[in-house]
């Protein structure tokens, strides 16, 4: 017998949000913030929190396409190297090739986009597993960056160039505005558009998605290219923030990004995840890092605590999922 579809009541909805992955994560974040605030009075201040927003923008921007990619069951390890490559191309085309700075910025971001496109092309057309392909380009793009830079750093940019990385708009770090807008736009894209639906379908069952007539290859190519683009933008912001260009920029950032995405509830096997979760993941990790350091913890102890929180959050999530699966 077909029972009539029951419309969820407001209480149901509230309960749903509270015990969702994002809800639990948010709760963990609140508790962490409160605990950290009792340890040091330098942590919970508007200035400090805004400053942290500045620091987390690069990770946050890259984490958006990474969420898309991990939802499809893939991974992109090369984002840190792409970020470094884009930064170097920016500095090199401005200082060595003599491009106008505006054009150099575009060239830098485009080089990142192209790098992502190459990843996507090999993954889709040649069928190289994403892990292998981006592990290879992790080395390759970094090597390119070092080759182009010849160990020279570019500095001495004009004043307007630092506006994005060091300036403020209405009292809030400029790049944080960019992050907020990007998060909102791509959160909605994932949740509401055909692209978002296709990514979830691919992650849950790629064969099924193909057999339903979805253009799987096109979507995959698109998100790996998007990942390169975002890494390129992050490279630009990074240069603008630290006033210099070096070839080792962004080294290891891929692990921070993946940690934030996974902490945010995106399954590494694909099929589930959200931009909201990823955002909370990014914020939580940044606040832990900062708060623990301010409390006087050494940096190695800080890493240990962050690792423990990650494991704890995943355990809680699994517990919730299994409870839900049984009910």
């Amino acid at each position: 017998m077909q029972s009539a579809p029951r419309n969820p009541t407001r209480v149901d909805k509230l309960r749903h949000y509270l015990i969702s992955q994002e809800g639990v994560l948010f709760f963990i974040m609140l508790v962490s913030v409160l605990l950290l605030a009792t340890r040091t009075d330098k942590f919970l201040t508007v200035d400090n929190l805004l400053q942290q927003g500045r620091f987390m923008t690069e990770v946050g921007l890259i984490a958006i396409p990474m969420t898309y990619i991990i939802i499809t069951g893939g991974i992109d390890l090369s984002v840190g190297s792409i970020m470094g490559l884009a930064a170097i191309v920016l500095g090199w085309s401005w200082q060595t090739l003599g491009f106008p700075l505006e054009l150099a910025i575009i060239t830098g971001v485009l080089s990142g986009t192209l790098a992502g496109f190459v990843n996507g092309l090999f993954i889709v057309r040649v069928g190289v597993p994403p892990l292998i392909m981006t592990l290879a380009t992790l080395a390759l793009f970094r090597g390119l960056a070092e080759g182009i830079s010849q160990a020279r750093s570019a500095r001495g940019y004009p004043e307007w160039f630092y506006q994005l990385g060091q300036g403020e708009l209405l009292g809030i770090p400029t790049q944080l505005w960019l992050l907020i807008v990007t998060v909102a736009v791509f959160g909605i894209v994932l949740a509401r558009t055909q692209l978002g639906r296709a990514l979830y379908a691919i992650g849950n069952n790629e064969t099924g998605a193909r057999f339903s007539g979805l253009t799987v290859n096109r979507y995959l190519l698109l998100i790996y290219t998007f990942s390169g683009f975002m890494a390129g933008v992050a490279g630009y912001i990074f240069v603008s923030r630290v006033s210099t260009t070096r070839s080792d920029m962004g080294a290891g950032i891929e692990l921070d990004v993946i940690a934030a995405v996974v902490l945010g509830g995106t399954s590494i096997f694909g099929g589930t995840g959200s931009i909201l979760g990823t955002t909370i993941g990014v914020v939580l990790i940044q606040l832990l890092k900062n708060g623990l350091t301010l409390s006087g913890l050494t940096s190695d102890a800080t890493i240990v605590v962050i690792g423990s929180v990650l494991i704890f959050a995943i355990l809680v999530n699994n517990f919730i999922l299994s409870r839900r699966g049984n009910s």
């Binding site: 979830y200 379908a201 849950n204 069952n205 064969t207 099924g208 057999f211 339903s212 099929g271």
Partner: peptide, 12 residues
């Protein structure tokens, strides 16, 4: 494997 995305809803 081919016909459905089993983890997704009837609507989807």
């Amino acid at each position: 494997r081919q016909g459905l995305i089993r983890e997704m809803t009837i609507r989807e």
